[in-house]
Every structure is written in structure tokens, then in C-alpha cells.
Design a binder for these strands. Structure first.
Lengths: 206, 206
DNA sequence: GTCTATATCCCGATAGAC
DNA sequence: GTCTATCGGGATATAGAC
């Protein structure tokens, strides 16, 4: 009775698609308090639902977290792929991917953190690897093209670019590039530039 | 009376240097359960001390966490600096620093995670920036040397190398390079190789 | 500087009714 | 598919004694 108000305010998820609603609410919550501060109980409260209800849709807290992470992996891959379209050189496609990667981390930190900072056993959640596969592929294709003959060198370049993007993204979220939207573009541009440098100096990879 | 056993087993920190003991125990705990799973209560229990005792030495949970992070920053800087000594070329000094960075993250994950994955406001903890300064300097010096004339390009290279190291380190801790010590050396070598590539292609930075 | 004791709050998860 | 009710556990933090 008392929590009916909240449910009404927030849009009556009762008997709707609670699973999806929980994912959305989890994203909100993580954005506000970080992954560690997220709880099933609080998410339930926000949706005007009992703490028992989520267990009909997710085995436990980590399962919901994994669903958020999978959504993040999909959206990140989509964002990167979208940016790499319509560019002429392979190097520029990689650089554009780097830009998109860092911007995504800054724009949807909750999804990014669920994917990377939630401490989920990715080995035990093959869905996540599957959701992340398109991202790998989007970077792998230009890299392979650039590295033509040499075996494995496409993979080496892909991994180097990915790690560089990831480093810029995580340092950015950690505040190492300073505050504000200006820091986001700075970090993104640096990641893109570093990607170009990796491409230019790729003979030194392995 | 019941917890006297544990205190005896673990070495009677009573009336010793509790502050330092708390830092050590926090490191143990974080190594076992991750940053999120760390609590003042559990640390107190392990030391055979009341939950109230730590508050004589640290304002709250985050203050102890910050002390661990500061220790991590210091040790990381030391490890990187140590590796860069005695090498002839500037490029190799940077590459060796990258090696050390990734190995540190893998070898002392608790310290590394306290420093980067604890969600501490580094802006509000200037001690941390101070503790990390030697690290920046260790990378900056060879980078400046390499980039000679061009203004700011030393800093650009330093940041690119740092982000690349960080990306490899965090992906490694996330399991992206697979399990085991073999993965550690793989990631470390890749970070070093990427650093050499960044140096080789540094004209593309900015 | 540490302990006793306690207040206060939150969480995950489950059983059983509807 | 959701609710009621509850068990069992753990956390932070403080007040006051010694």
C-alpha cells in the first residue's frame, strides 16, 4: 500500500515485462551508485515490486548483472561498428572505432562498468563472449587487411588497439583525464591518435 | 574470549601498529574477495580486534582503502622505475616500464585494484596523486627525450604509453588474456610491444 | 588505544499463499 | 508472476567504560 505511490510514479511495471524493467532500473542504479552499490532489493523498490519478484526472472543478483553486461557488450559493439562504416582507409576505420569505444564508456558508464568492472566470471557466462564477438570482428577486419601477409599479426594489432582503447576509457572513467565533457573528447582523441600510431608502428608488434 | 584464538593465531597485533596491520590485512582481504568484498568489520575480525578499533586510525572505510591505494601507487611507481634502469635506448626503457606495469597489476592485484577499481575520488585525495607522480615522471623522461623538439609531444607519448599499459593490465585482470601465469607474460609482452609500436609511430600522435 | 555494547540499516534468498 | 512474511547474515558507526 505504501509503495503503490512509487509504482504509480514510475509507471506500473506490474505484470508488464519485469525482466526488461529490471535491466533498465539496474542501469539507472549503477549509473548513480556504481556497480558495487547496486542491489536487487533497491531495484525492486524502485519498480514498486517485492524483493521476491526478481527471482522469477533472474537466478540471482549476478544473473541480472550479467544481463546488463550483455546489453552493454551489444551496444558497445554496435557503436563501434557504426563508426567504422563509410571510411576509406583501414587505419581511419580503426581510429574511428577507438573514438567510439571511449565515447561509449563515457556516455554509458553503467553499461561499460557492468561489462568490465562487475567482477563477473566471463568464462562462466558464454553469452557475454558471444555478445562481445562483433566488437572483436569489427576491429579484426581492418587490422587483418592492414597486416596482410604476416600470420597472427592482424590479431596482434587488434589486441593492441583494443587494449589501448580500453586503457583510455578506464582511465577516463577514473578521472585521470579530468572532469567534464572536454575530458571525454580529449581521451577519445588520444585513443584515436594512439591507434594511428600503433598502425604506423605496427612492425614493432611482436 | 572467542576471538582470542584468532588473534593468537595471527600474531597479536594488539597494541602494536594497528594502522599498518589494517593496511596489510586489507590487502589480503582484497586479494581474496575483491575491493567490493572488503569491509572494516572483516579486517577487524582477522586481526582479533573490535570493529570499533579501526576508527581510531582511519576516519572510515574509504580512508583505509585510500591508504592501501597510496601504498599501491608507491609500489607501482617503484616497480616501473626499477625496470627502466640500466637500459640503453629510451624506447627500451619505456617498453621495460610497460612490462613492469602489467606484471605489477598481475602480481599485486589487490594494490592495483585499490588504486584503480575502488571508486575513490582521486580529486579529493591529493595524497594519491602525489604517490603516483614518480610513475608519471619515470615514463615522461624517456618520452621527452624521444620527442625532443616538438612541444607537448613528450606528454602525448607518455599518456599513450600509460593508457596502453593500463588497458593491457585491466583486461588481463578481467581474464581477457586467459588464466594462469602464461597469460600474464603474454599481456606484459604485448604491452611492451605496443609501447615499441607507439614509439615507432609517434609522429601520428596528435 | 582498545573494548563492550548497541543502534540502525541493508542485503540475498526462500517458503508458501494467492 | 507476484506478494507476504521471514530467516540469517553482515555492515557502518557511535557512546561510554577502562
Amino acid at each position: 500500500m505504501k509503495n503503490m505511490k512509487r509504482a504509480a510514479k514510475r509507471g506500473q511495471y506490474h505484470h508488464g515485462d519485469l525482466a526488461a524493467a529490471l535491466v533498465d532500473t539496474a542501469v539507472e542504479l549503477i549509473a548513480e551508485r556504481g556497480v558495487a552499490g547496486f542491489s536487487l532489493a533497491e531495484a525492486s523498490r524502485r519498480l514498486g515490486v517485492t524483493v521476491a519478484a526478481p527471482y522469477r526472472h533472474f537466478a540471482d543478483r549476478d544473473a541480472l548483472l550479467a544481463a546488463v553486461a550483455a546489453k552493454g557488450a551489444g551496444e558497445l559493439a554496435t557503436a563501434v561498428v557504426a563508426q567504422t562504416h563509410g571510411l576509406t582507409t583501414e587505419a581511419e576505420r580503426l581510429a574511428a572505432g577507438a573514438l567510439a569505444y571511449v565515447r561509449f564508456a563515457a556516455g554509458k558508464p553503467a553499461l561499460f562498468q557492468a561489462l568490465f568492472a562487475a567482477g563477473l566470471d566471463k568464462h562462466k557466462r558464454p553469452e557475454l563472449e558471444a555478445a562481445a564477438a562483433p566488437l572483436l570482428e569489427a576491429l579484426c577486419q581492418p587490422a587483418d587487411s592492414l597486416c596482410g601477409g604476416v600470420p597472427d599479426s592482424g590479431k596482434d594489432l587488434t589486441l593492441a588497439v583494443l587494449a589501448t582503447c580500453h586503457g583510455h576509457a578506464t582511465l577516463l572513467l577514473d578521472g585521470a583525464f579530468g572532469p567534464g565533457p572536454e575530458a571525454v573528447e580529449d581521451a577519445a582523441n588520444r585513443a584515436a591518435a594512439a591507434t594511428r600510431a600503433l598502425v604506423a608502428g605496427r612492425d614493432a608488434l611482436r
